[in-house]
Design a protein around this nucleic acid. Structure first.
Lengths: 340, 340
DNA sequence: AAATTTAGCGCAAACGTTTGCGCTCAGTTA
DNA sequence: TAACTGAGCGCAAACGTTTGCGCTAAATTT
């Protein structure tokens, strides 16, 4: 029931607590015999060092905190697995929390992590995180690494996906399969990744000498019904698009539902591409072409950078690393007339 | 950079640390004026109590640990949100971790939580957790509540869904819409929830005077391709089933894919029901009828029980609570001839 | 005015661990 | 034999906080 302490071991063996402490670490100052004895007794009593006491001494807890918008999104769930792999290999414990896209909860989570005593924090920002004071604040106390949902105003190591080229290749793919009017269904205005992907969209059209039709750039929420409604509006127009690049798979799936409702054939009448390559993308019908992000690798690398920074002595040099995306081509863009 | 401590405040105000401590709690022993002054200064300096120090004094950390198989499963993700709501309302912090179905990782997670200093643990067991010594062990040190993936050999409060009646109602629904040969696609052999659902399946057939055809009870893995293969085998038989009840939505979606491949119409040729009501269920086409579990409520209640037990003085009486499921009827079982 | 109360605060110990320093005693050297 | 060395261990302080007890001075009672 009660914790076994170093003092207990000391009392039993009739030696001092300091000797026990040193013996457990195999200090050369202690005789082999004592070391043996202490270690044996410790194991027998199932001694576990008290992390609170260690923490009081400013000793690292070998724990890192992770804050993401939603652990249910497969991207974050996968990234977390990457983080855990790296952390585990280097002897660190990971604790995760989700902000559910709320800045307030994000702040609370960070404070909690700090009080629990993590050595550093890995964070992907909530959708509407604007005041980044809490981040600056925590940064003065421990290393922080941003990933995926990063921010330009924060100086730290960053891991993110190359949204621009990812979007570019998606739109280019639509062009190659013969789409002539391509729409972009973005996320909420102001969301960084959404804007970056819009830039990629614009750039692809520009590079292929298409002119930009602003009316084909629309904003949606991530909510399914909202996405369906937005897509319906788009597809009901007389000059409806024959290709849609959506900011996320959820939105793309909304577009698919809208197209079906209007009896449009996918991809013959309208081709659709999503982003994230959620597992659902390959399961729905038609299966959804999507831009895949190396979530696991990104998580692993983010954890690597964070732990490096934690363990680094002296001035650490921040690192920014962007990852390439991969276009997963599926039925929603496979026009049979095109051999691809 | 450095933590602001009570001593800092004491030094600045030229009073003792004990006075600061008491003032912060609004103790009646301290004058109003001093209390004001201290609280003001604390706020100004952004004082945060050091959790490690509190922890050393055997004071509760107001933190609870959650261990689930996979945070990416929508059930656990939702349950976590319920847990967080309850915890937040009662002033608790939640830290989550996933076992990824590995007993070893589950044990590691529990040890980590203990050392971080949680007041109690909420756990849903990994798929193949067999040796439950680690659970008994931790139970001697702090309250533990099991949820969803519970175990009979552990004595603790438990929250779970009524798998048997959930399966029963699903199969009964298939019978009502006119299915004559109903198959059960289970999960890996030995998985408790899978077996419970099989019992519900059997019971429904029995109750409606159908005889049990053992060859219609098959086992699958949760992996999509595996599920498709298993379903194909089932549906290619000359006496193929006209109804399938699957242990999970993932497996059910595999069955849908298989049916489509064989050009079978859903639900006319074969009706399909899944379990869990993942978000994907309503998004695919045909949308999938599924047994919904009240994940959020279950999480909330589990947290409630755990916190009750943490805060209870004296002997706590364990509580077991099972939740009813709800059948979400969608296209995959909507035969047009049946008005339901 | 003397005695008693009480409001308001400080002292010090305790929680579990680490670590610099000092101590003891055996063995070695001169 | 006396002085020295070093192996092996203990003492005590420190980390931040709480809390029982004690202290001082002012306010109240006789």
């Amino acid at each position: 029931m009660e914790q076994v302490t170093i003092k207990d071991i000391a009392r039993i063996l009739n030696i001092s607590a300091s000797t026990v402490s040193r013996a457990l670490k195999g200090s050369p100052e202690i005789s082999k015999a004592t070391i043996e004895l202490v270690k044996e007794t410790a194991k027998r009593l199932n001694y576990q060092p008290n992390k609170a006491a260690l923490s009081l001494l400013h000793i690292k807890t070998r724990t890192i905190g992770v804050v993401v918008p939603n652990l249910g999104y497969s991207f974050f769930s996968l990234a977390l697995q990457g983080i855990e792999e790296e952390a585990s290999q280097r002897g660190y414990t990971v604790i995760a929390s989700q902000s559910l896209e709320s800045e307030e909860k994000e702040i609370r989570n960070i404070i909690d992590m700090k009080r629990i005593g993590v050595d550093g924090i890995l964070i992907s920002l909530a959708q509407y995180s604007s005041q980044l004071n809490h981040l600056m604040d925590i940064q003065s106390q421990m290393p922080v690494v941003l990933f995926d949902r990063v921010s330009d105003t924060i100086r730290s190591s960053k891991i993110y996906v190359n949204n621009l080229t990812g979007a570019f290749s998606a739109v280019e793919h639509l062009i190659k399969i013969g789409c002539r009017r391509i729409a972009y269904m973005g996320g909420p205005k102001g969301l960084l990744i959404s804007n970056r992907r819009r830039d990629g969209y614009t750039m692809a059209l520009f590079r292929h000498n298409r002119k930009i039709d602003e009316s084909l750039i629309v904003h949606s929420e991530f909510d399914h019904n909202y996405a369906v409604k937005t897509a319906l509006k788009l597809l009901k127009r007389k000059d409806r698009p024959d290709g849609i690049f959506a900011v996320s798979d959820r939105v793309a799936i909304g577009a698919i539902a809208a197209a079906k409702k209007l009896q449009l054939r996918i991809p013959q009448d309208v081709a659709i591409i999503g982003f994230n390559d959620e597992p659902i993308a390959s399961l729905i019908s038609p299966s959804l072409t999507s831009v895949k992000q190396p979530a696991f690798d990104m998580g692993k690398m983010a954890a690597q950078l964070l732990i490096d920074e934690i363990e680094y002595v002296g001035k650490y040099q921040h690192v920014s690393k962007s990852y390439p995306t991969k276009l997963m081509i599926r039925e929603s863009t496979k026009k049979t007339s095109i051999k691809n």
